[in-house]
């Protein structure tokens, strides 16, 4: 699976691939472009990645999660390039027999991606400035 994409993430398409007959719980996290940062109006986000390393990093994180929880499905996709307000920048989908492990694994995966995957966000503000976070 490709974990880094320049294309708009279509959540429904991911969910279609995440249904599993042995999974009674499916959890979706969508990290979306927000129009406010520290009280400043944000007009757009832009993401950059070291693509090859980010792909491997996310695959390693998913593998860690699969080893820690009995997951039927674990997927994560992060967008790079320009992301408009309210569009998904990163989506994590987990499915398991029961909701507890699906929720826990989903949170673990997004936390690990944010901390470790070599991906960076640039915010463009309404005042014309922009800043790498």
């Amino acid at each position: 699976m490709v974990h880094i994409t320049e294309k708009k993430i279509i959540i429904d398409e991911l969910v279609q691939k995440a249904h599993h007959p042995e999974a009674g719980a499916l959890v979706i996290f969508s990290g979306e472009a927000r129009n406010l940062h520290d009280g400043k109006s944000v007009t757009m986000l832009e993401y950059e990645a070291q693509v090859e390393m980010a792909e491997k990093s996310i695959e390693d994180i998913l593998e860690l999660a699969r080893n820690r929880w009995p997951l039927k499905i674990a997927m994560a996709v992060h967008r790079i390039g320009k992301v408009e307000i309210s569009e998904p920048a990163v989506v994590v989908v987990t499915a398991a027999a029961h909701r507890k492990e699906a929720y826990e694994a989903n949170q673990f995966i997004i936390d690990q991606i944010k901390e470790h995957a070599p991906i960076w966000k640039k915010e463009s503000f309404a005042d014309g400035n922009s800043k790498w976070q």
Partner: peptide, 9 residues
Amino acid sequence: DILPPSSGG
């Protein structure tokens, strides 16, 4: 590759 602290998500 010099990789600043991650800020994805």
